[in-house]
Design a protein around this nucleic acid. Structure first.
Length: 667
RNA sequence: GGGCCCGUAGCUCAAGCGGAUAGAGCAUCGGAUUUCUAAUCCGAGGGUUGCAGGUUCGAUUCCUGCCGGGCCUACCA
């Protein structure tokens, strides 16, 4: 509702400015006043117009307030300070609309959205860095769906890369295992943990003797070639680890629709199709001299050709040689293609620009019967249509922004500027460990490391916190609390609640930081259930539910009837004026959910949603404390307070659901 | 060397295309309801927003230069 009213306000003002001052495209900034007493919207408009109109801001503000006229849903306009215009809505009308759950539809862009996230190398267990990626990605998917978009979720699987090769090397060269032995291990529990340790050992083995790296190269070639024993072993390992990743993420209620694999990008010759087009378009150039002799290279994203002389034309510049430093090798001199090249082909496919498609088969069925598909060379006849989408978001950490930009520039160079514009690298910073946390985990730290603000997680070194371990620790910690608080519940009930709390804590923790902030992970912070945490927000909902349970009422049906149970006159009575301010702030915040969701999508920043959930929970907790509802003697007022609790409960449940957080029945 | 990001309270973080008195959580200290469960609430202390300039009616936000930190900059992925 809040967003809808803002749009109406802006449209009305734009019309007014055109009519009164002849201003066509004034930039109308709408802010939120610092205090609820000032109103619901604030306009610094008069400051902006002061120069254009050559008048004092205060004077302009007064003219606007006097002349703007009535707008449905709004109460009045006031001039404040040196020229602010504060706008008040009709509180009763907004509250009644929110109680009735009226949310006027916004314009939903057409076309399917593709979100790619997780994309964990299938050679070891997932760690906390992967959790941040998956939780950000999954939440963004939920936000898009909340806003009415159709979304496909993809998880790219690099099953033929060096990392998988390394683990294959570990099994074959270090452990000397047979295929049958590896198969048996892969079928055993925690195979991903086994690979985690083995991967670290392989890295160590390479360091011991550089000649060992030849085993990696030979293995990599065998895997890429396919149709041999080594490739078959790599496939069985990566497939087994992948299943563990899907199970780990499913614990957090994260699901995928399709798993495109690098092996199919290779075997279905996606690259060949892309290579032809890239050469034709002149995006790739062949180097016949210098350090990259024999390679096909592209200009590195973000670099610009230096004009040889003043007045060079654009054409001349594009024909110019790219300096070695600005060259990005796409095809090596031995004819093999690097990962950026494969990525370009893959992204052409995403936008339906490649002219080729994957084969598809069902791979994994979630407990809720949702199917996750995987790429194959020859697939099932009937399958959903993937790819060929209108917009894409790639949830990939900031370290890969240059590679992402190279892919975008390749699309642009191919003449697909509109696709490049709808390609978003959803970039975020990594999760690292605090030195204290690293020490707790038993890692030896140098004096230099101890002084660092954080230490980077490294799968190669086996250095990090595994996703399942963290989740287990959270569940254990939550279970201890639940067991102490609710001995009357069955063990199964208590365990279920502990899981919900653990997931709430984890997902909230990963979402509360803004994307550019490195998370310096520490168990103390991550295991906290108090204050600015997921469980705090869950607890607010539980308390709201408790009011209804104690009162013998059903919160859902009460919520559906809220608009009928409280008249507009009563809303006005309880929400107007100074005395109504604190409860009004709660209603107003509850009305902002779709506004916040819109902001999150526009800025690709889910942290705003976490902030919103916390604010709403915090306001509710204060309200809960200040107003005993069931003991309220005044019948009308009691109903109004119940309606407040019911509506806030509904909105908070929705917000938490958008973050992938469930609310336990009791806490 | 070049590119990107960061620097805000003791600690961890916010601050909506530049706006009103820079806000939370944790920690510390002091309080609260035999009431809808205290995973809660109220209060206190705590800030030259890294430094120096600039633009502006107005700068944590934009620009420039320094200082400090991180990441990227492979014929690895």
């Amino acid at each position: 509702m809040y967003r809808y009213l803002e749009r109406r306000l802006v449209e009305h003002l734009r019309e007014f400015l055109r009519r009164t001052y002849g201003l066509e495209s004034a930039n109308i900034v709408v802010e939120q006043p610092p205090k609820i007493e000032f109103g619901e919207y604030a306009l610094p408009l008069a400051f902006e117009l002061a120069r254009k109109l050559r008048k004092a801001p205060r004077k302009i503000a007064e003219e606007i307030v006097a002349g703007v006229g009535a707008i449905p849903g709004f109460e009045k306009f006031e001039v404040a300070g040196g020229g602010y215009i504060n706008v008040r809505v009709n509180r009763a009308e907004l509250a009644a609309a929110l109680a009735a759950d009226e949310e006027p539809a916004a314009d939903v862009p057409t076309g399917k959205v593709l979100v790619e996230h997780s994309s964990i190398n299938p050679n070891k267990a997932a760690h906390i860095g992967h959790l941040r990626n998956a939780i950000l990605g999954d939440t963004f998917v939920r936000l898009l769906r909340f806003a009415g978009r159709e979304v496909d979720v993809q998880n790219y699987i690099d099953n033929t890369g060096a990392q998988v090769a390394d683990v294959v090397v570990g099994f074959l060269h270090i452990e000397q295992k047979s295929r049958a032995q590896i198969e048996a291990l892969a079928a055993a529990p925690r195979f991903d943990y086994y690979c985690w340790d083995l991967y670290a050992r392989v890295s160590h083995w390479y360091e011991e003797d550089k000649s060992n790296l030849q085993a990696r190269l030979a293995t990599l070639h065998a895997i890429e070639g396919g149709n041999n024993e080594t490739a078959a072993i790599a496939d069985l390992i990566s497939t087994a680890v992948l299943k563990h990743h899907l199970e780990t993420m499913d614990r957090l209620d994260i699901e995928y629709d399709f798993l495109p694999r690098e092996s199919e990008i290779l075997h279905l010759h996606f690259w060949d199709a892309a290579f032809t087009k890239l050469k034709e378009a002149g995006v790739l150039t062949y180097e016949d001299e210098g350090k990259n002799q024999g390679c096909w290279v592209m200009r590195r994203a973000g670099t610009v050709a230096e004009p040889l002389t003043r007045g060079d034309t654009a054409e001349k510049i594009t024909e110019e040689k790219i300096t070695e430093e600005d060259q990005k090798v796409i095809v090596r001199s031995n004819g093999t293609v690097g990962y950026v090249g494969k990525d370009i082909a893959y992204h052409m496919w995403k936008f339906g620009l490649l002219g080729r498609d994957f084969g598809y088969r069902k791979f994994y069925r979630y407990p809720n019967a949702h199917d996750c598909w995987i790429s194959t060379t020859e697939g099932e006849k009937d399958h959903p249509h993937f790819g060929d989408v209108a917009e894409i978001y790639n949830v990939i950490d900031a370290r890969q922004s240059e590679a992402q930009n190279t892919v975008i520039e390749a699309l642009r160079g191919l003449g697909h500027g509109e696709a490049a514009d709808r390609y978003t690298h959803f970039s975020y910073e990594m999760v690292a460990l605090t030195p204290r946390c690293a020490a707790e985990l038993g890692y030896q730290l140098s004096e230099e490391d101890k002084a660092r603000p954080w230490i980077e997680v490294s799968g190669r070194k086996g250095f990090g916190v595994k996703a399942d371990d963290l989740l287990d620790a959270l569940i254990t910690s939550a279970a201890k609390e639940v067991d102490g608080r609710h001995p009357e519940l069955s063990a199964a009930e208590r365990a279920g609640i502990a899981v919900q709390i653990a997931i709430g804590a984890l997902r909230y923790f990963m979402l509360k930081f803004t994307k550019p902030s490195v998370i310096a992970f520490d168990f103390k912070d991550a295991l906290s259930f108090e204050g600015d945490t997921g469980p705090y927000a869950q607890y607010a909902v539980v308390r709201a539910s408790n009011i209804f349970r104690k009162g013998g009422l059903d919160p859902e049906s009460f919520c559906r009837d809220a608009a009928n149970l409280v008249s507009k006159e009563e809303f006005a009575k309880y929400l107007t004026g100074e005395s109504g301010n604190d409860i009004w702030e709660l209603w107003l915040t509850a009305a902002k959910t779709s506004y916040i969701v819109g902001q999150c999508i526009a800025t690709t920043e889910p942290a705003y949603l976490a902030k919103h959930a916390f604010q709403l929970a915090q306001l509710f907790s204060t309200f809960y404390h200040r107003y005993p509802i069931l003991s309220e003697a005044d019948e009308g007022r009691r109903t109004f307070l119940l309606a407040t609790a019911a509506v806030v409960r509904r909105e908070l449940i929705r917000v938490l659901a958008a973050m992938g957080i469930d609310v336990p029945p009791v806490m």
